[in-house]
Design a protein around this nucleic acid. Structure first.
Lengths: 226, 226
DNA sequence: CCGATGACTGGATAAAAATACAGTGATGAC
DNA sequence: GTCATCACTGTATTTTTATCCAGTCATCGG
């Protein structure tokens, strides 16, 4: 018995599961709409009704966040198998420095070091640490030289801080997306000195490399100044 | 060393767990009040605050049903007590939440959790993680809720970020001291909204508890906003 | 071409929830 | 005796949240 779910419904279902795992509570209609870029919470409502009709979830009328997952039979589609060569049972994480153009982030020559940090400290799990260059995310508390804990993923939700590759350059920004924008996304800095980067997907290729799940700053010791 | 929870608090905690198990979502304040017979939802609110202070749950401000169970230490306190005190050879660090007035920072009841991070990652070595409250060090990239890696020390140098105790309150600030000042030091916030605290050592006792050696931020995952 | 279905926008509204404020007793420490 | 903490009552007020209504556009089977 395969799933009669549509792709979009599958995405909504995955989002619900992810939301419960990361926040402890199911999402509201508005949160679903925001995460998937809908401009109306009613779109989320429609999806929930459809999922309930198909038996994937159970809704409790009138109760806020009254969404319950039923029998998680199928494996989720979202990039579960992509962690190539990463030991999930490891107690440490590789730190990635400057990434050369054209090569994958996790290529061995990019690994500067390994740090004794449990990957499962973060939710979702961190796959590597990326050394941040520049101050474009300053107001999000991510400073030059910080190590960003990254969960490797090919997709991200509106509002998340992502590691993206644009024109073969790797950058860290907040992702902005709307349902109305078909060929457009924005990479927004968290610092008024930097303008948002508007990406036209018909002209430029944008690859999501992962989502930020934490920050680690070492070397706070010395009496250095900003 | 049993739970620092009172009987009533334990009952509330059990109820929350039961509610999640049976309905799939955490309870609201009104539902807690109703289940335990309170006539005011505010009674539930008070209990939740107390449980959060003790690290049994985590509350998300403004989010309906934003209650999360932390580290299910087990219903009853079994013989195997948790590692209290200072294991130097450990691979993890204790995280300290709110520090009660008059008691030492590393007292067992302040330990919210332990995180798998090698103490030697930091220089000098970190002895514990302190959960930062407030935004007074915002411009140093230390945000509300961050975990500050702290090296226990009784002295610090000018310009270092320190964990200090003043009037029995623990605070994180940058230390300012000049050779010319004999009885004076300043604790400077890294945020223009906070004025520097000028300390006259003849009148107030200032204790250095440690110096900041790093920052760790978890929970960067969800699409939450600042 | 028609009607059903999926995937939405936009606006409105009532109910549900969080949370602030002001109190009351009781208990135990100092 | 005073103070802090716990365990509440009661009243507001503001946000959140669920949910309804009225449409639009595209696709697909018949």
């Amino acid at each position: 018995m395969t799933n009669p779910l549509t792709d979009r419904q599958r995405q909504v279902l995955d989002l619900i599961e992810r939301h419960i795992r990361t926040t402890g509570v199911p999402p509201t209609r508005a949160e679903i709409a925001d995460a998937l870029g809908f401009r109306s919470a009613n779109a989320a409502e429609d999806h929930l009704r459809a999922l309930a009709r198909r038996g994937a979830i159970e809704l409790t009328r009138g109760r806020s966040r009254g969404i319950r997952l039923i029998a998680l039979a199928g494996a989720s589609a979202d990039g579960a198998s992509t962690r190539a060569g990463l030991d999930s049972a490891a107690l440490d994480l590789p730190a990635i420095g400057r990434v050369a153009a054209g090569s994958p982030i996790l290529a061995a020559e990019h690994v500067e070091d390994r740090y004794p940090i449990g990957p499962d400290l973060f939710h979702p799990r961190a796959d590597y640490l990326l050394r941040v260059r520049g101050s474009s995310m300053r107001d999000a508390g991510i400073l030059d030289g910080d190590l960003l804990a990254v969960h490797a993923a090919q997709t991200a939700e509106n509002g998340q801080i992502v590691v993206a590759r644009l024109n073969d350059e790797v950058t860290v920004k907040r992702l902005r997306r709307h349902a109305r924008w078909v060929y457009r996304v924005e990479l927004v800095a968290e610092n008024p000195d930097f303008a948002p980067i508007v990406v036209d997907l018909r002209q430029q290729e944008l690859t999501i490399e992962g989502i930020a799940v934490g920050v680690l700053r070492l070397g706070l010791a010395g009496p250095q100044q900003l």
